[in-house]
Design a protein around this nucleic acid. Structure first.
Lengths: 210, 210
DNA sequence: ATCTGTGAAGCACTTCACAGCG
DNA sequence: CGCTGTGAAGTGCTTCACAGAT
């Protein structure tokens, strides 16, 4: 079956809320309550889940633990994902130091930079490789995800080379609209675009959406 | 007129591409070419722009400089926006040091933390205030945007207080689905959610979207 | 009585296709 | 002839509303 992309994007949200409920000892939750927590309509949650199976009990709701387990299985969150970071400037170092990835199964296992003053240095337990050696290093131990934290000018090149190394998911922090072949996922992390999308509504005369 | 929110989210993208074209000396661009650069269909670009007026010349395309100026006016990018940062831990410090905001007119003018070891310190030219003094400090010189970089547990509280201070746009780096009243914009920056939305497609048997 | 799962209806966004201008 | 601007058609997502399970 063909699942709408927006549905896939909401599942991690559900998983996170369920994890929180689980750790607070909650055993059952209704689509109603989950929806309240996440600003999503209950119907939306039920419809989203229905693409993958029937996980609830009528009259009761969803077993928190079981549904969480199912979502993890669906999304592939019950395993470790290996990531390569390209760019160890200010931004790259912040990403390397970010504590949020590990607990969710995402590990940066290689780091690259093209700046001579960086290459060879140790950082967060990793030796920084020369970006020129990308193909060689990733050939030896391939990764699942590439994180691009290089300046705009070199980002497309970095992405092209990651793709050539077989990387099929890229998290792009560079402020460009990158091109990737069909079959490769790419998501942009771009706070400036987010801000610029909000200023429109701050201007007098523009009413809020939805 | 009621503009679809997705349209507003694309305008900053167009503005960025136009800025790049402008600085490379380009005078005219067609929706076709702009679309190629941004992975957007030409029809989409033309339709999006048509919500705001008629900016192109038939047979020629769009004057780069003029269209850029129009988009800046529409989005409110031709002014400075004052921002307050809450949370100066690892993540908050990276945000404070981020060089991408300034050139686009976004300036962090206040920084807050609740940790005694941080309060009073100087950082990026700012004195870190006690989060307890949020209302007092923002009352004196209000800001347009709040950036939330505190742990999940205190994020909703930080957001509530920003809203009470009259802040109507929030950039939320905390991994929670926050609640804001109608009329307040909020955008999430959450790399883990982005990653989790991609792993689905990395699993064998799940074909790529679109 | 409560809450799920789901066809069907409704809505929002995208794309088509072409008239019209330069 | 090239390219915009735009109603109309098409697509995809959301919400409704209710049958059915507990």
């Amino acid at each position: 079956m063909e699942i709408p992309p927006v549905v896939i994007d909401r599942l991690p949200l559900y998983a996170r809320a369920l994890a929180s409920l689980e750790s607070s000892g909650r055993e059952v939750v209704s689509s109603q309550e989950l929806g309240q927590q996440l600003n999503v309509t209950p119907a939306q949650i039920r419809k989203d889940l229905s693409y993958f199976g029937r996980f609830g009990k009528q009259g009761r709701g969803y077993n928190v633990q079981k549904l969480l387990e199912e979502l993890r299985r669906i999304l592939g969150l019950n395993r470790q994902w290996r990531m390569a970071l390209i760019g160890t400037g200010r931004l790259g170092r912040a990403i390397l130091g970010y504590e949020g990835f590990g607990p969710q199964g995402f590990r940066i296992v290689e780091a690259f930079d093209s700046d001579a003053s960086m290459i060879g240095k140790e950082m967060a337990g990793l030796t920084i490789h020369d970006t020129a050696d990308l193909e060689k290093v990733l050939g030896a131990g391939p990764v699942d995800v590439g994180i691009v934290a290089v300046p705009a000018e070199t980002a497309q090149n970095a992405i092209d080379r990651l793709v050539k190394c077989g990387v099929r998911a890229i998290l792009n922090y560079a402020p460009i609209a990158a091109h990737v072949p069909r079959g490769v996922q790419i998501k942009r992390i771009d706070p400036v675009l987010s801000l610029q999308g909000m200023t429109y509504y701050l201007k007098a005369g523009n009413s809020s959406p939805k």
